[in-house]
Design a protein around this nucleic acid. Structure first.
Length: 211
DNA sequence: TATGCGATATTCT
DNA sequence: GAATATCGCATAG
């Protein structure tokens, strides 16, 4: 009785071209809501619908790039549409989509997906069958999608295995609230999410911001 | 349901 | 040595 699971629904996704992505960090963070993240493995496809992002724009004190370029954050300085993957808290990888022009360090953190395809694989990697716990949160998302340092610096619009695709259905109104887990510039409403979507991370009381 | 805290590794100071 | 764009389990209510 798997006929109702999202994993069996055929996906009609087209790859996004770089020219379709806004270069501006805030615009890109909004634009990515509802779009599809796809990771083609040798034997299967992993895919999810992006439902939550955070912008880390130019001059933002909470951004990794705030203090200038270092070897560890090189990918943030690539042209918009590249993956920046970093490791933190001893256990989690997280993925950004780089923004702005080449040489400028800024990006959009992917915080949550709605699982679409490859759910069995995600469940095995995450050690749970609970759909809501597979990709809700940036660390979970990376683990479920098999994202780690190997894909750091990958061009997401160049025909590779990890790529951004078109939206598969209409996107509900987008909310904007404060970001999670930061200690500087904490008041900026740079966290964007699809309203009413259960796969958005964090406590619900933090979602009372303005659109 | 809500809050608290330890685990864990990479980077920069 | 300190800090960290988190997670998952523990405990209390």
């Amino acid at each position: 009785m798997m006929s109702n699971t999202p994993s069996n629904r055929p996906l009609r996704v087209r790859r996004l071209r770089r020219s379709e992505l806004p270069a501006d960090t805030i615009e890109l963070a909004r634009y990515l809501i509802g779009k599809t993240l796809v990771h083609d493995l040798s034997r299967m496809r992993l895919a999810g619908r992006i439902v939550e992002t955070e912008a880390y724009p130019i001059g933002d004190a909470a951004a990794h790039a705030f203090r200038g370029e270092t070897p560890g954050i090189r990918s943030l300085f690539l042209a918009h549409g590249h993956a920046y993957v970093f490791f933190t808290y001893g256990s989690c990888f997280m993925m950004n989509v780089s923004s702005e022009e080449a040489g400028t360090g800024a990006g959009v953190l992917l915080r949550a997906l709605e699982p679409l395809e490859g759910i069995r694989f995600m469940q095995r990697r995450r050690g749970t069958t609970r759909l809501l716990d597979l990709t809700r949160g940036p660390g979970r998302l990376a683990q479920a999608m098999d994202i780690d340092k190997r894909v750091d610096g990958v061009n997401l619009c160049a025909g590779g295995n990890l790529w951004l695709g078109t939206a598969l259905r209409r996107v509900s109104p987008i909310g904007a609230v404060t970001r999670i887990g930061i200690t500087r510039d904490i008041q900026r409403p740079y966290r964007f999410y699809e309203r009413g979507n259960p796969f958005v991370s964090g406590p619900k009381r933090l979602l009372k911001g303005i659109a």
